[in-house]
């Protein structure tokens, strides 16, 4: 049975190839991220809120673009034929796709989340919003994992777009749901981040779901016997 170590060099090359394909987009997002963190850092309510909305938009766009560009388009543009000519198994290809997508999304996601937290900690914005920001960011990561899994398992633009639309709609609902929870709502203006049982439970739930989705995707990918 093929595993990630059996053809590590080839997997690394495939990840490198994906990096080359999206590096222009990522560079643009990175520059956008610096701009957004700078805007939020001006620490006025208007700019902080504008920056927060832009940040969420950026996270969603990065995820959506990388899933479409690196997975769906490869099938659509028939560049998969090129991959077929390489000494790789479907499992190697699957690992490379999962690795490349996660790496290319997690790095900017982490930078944006850490940047946002740094802004909150160092500016007059109430530190009480930290659990809300973390939970929303984890939800966005979970959404990304869901449509990445859909893209990797189905290679269908239709299904992937449908999951994207659903998760984005759910994001709005999730934020409203969080804000209506007394355990979250009442601590928003606290001087320090209040990690109570509700917020910790939601965080644990979100991380568990992310792990389940990723492991499930990896397991299903392992069973693939062809590229098609």
């Amino acid at each position: 049975m093929s595993n990630i170590f059996s053809n590590a060099r080839m997997i690394k090359l495939l990840i490198g190839k994906d990096w080359q394909l999206v590096k222009k987009s990522l560079a643009a997002y990175l520059a956008g991220g610096v701009l957004v963190i700078g805007l939020m850092g001006m620490a006025t309510p208007l700019l902080f809120n504008t920056g927060a909305i832009l940040m969420i938009t950026l996270m969603i766009v990065i995820g959506a673009r990388s899933a479409i560009e690196l997975v769906i388009n490869e099938k659509k543009d028939q560049t998969l034929a090129f991959v077929l000519s390489l000494p790789v198994t479907p499992q190697d290809y699957a690992w490379a796709k999962l690795g490349a997508n996660l790496l290319l999304y997690l790095v900017p996601w982490l930078l944006l989340v850490l940047g946002m937290l740094a802004v909150i900690v160092s500016s007059p914005v109430y530190n009480g919003v930290i659990p809300l920001v973390v939970l929303v960011s984890v939800f966005i990561l979970l959404s990304y994992c869901c449509y990445l899994a859909t893209a990797l398992l189905t290679y269908s633009e239709g299904y992937t777009t449908a999951v994207m639309i659903i998760t984005n709609l759910l994001l709005n609902g999730f934020i409203i749901w969080l804000l209506r929870m007394p355990a979250i709502h009442l601590t928003l203006e606290a001087p320090t981040a209040s990690w109570n049982s509700t917020s910790l439970g939601l965080l644990t739930g979100g991380i568990t779901l992310i792990i389940i989705v990723l492991l499930g995707t990896a397991a299903l990918q392992q069973r693939k016997t062809s590229f098609l």
């Binding site: 610096v34 701009l35 963190i37 700078g38 805007l39 939020m40 850092g41 001006m42 940047g115 740094a118 802004v119 900690v121 160092s122 500016s123």
Partner: peptide, 10 residues
């Protein structure tokens, strides 16, 4: 010198 990048400085 705040803990975030100042756009004007960049």
């Amino acid at each position: 010198d705040w803990i975030f990048p100042a756009l004007w400085a960049l």
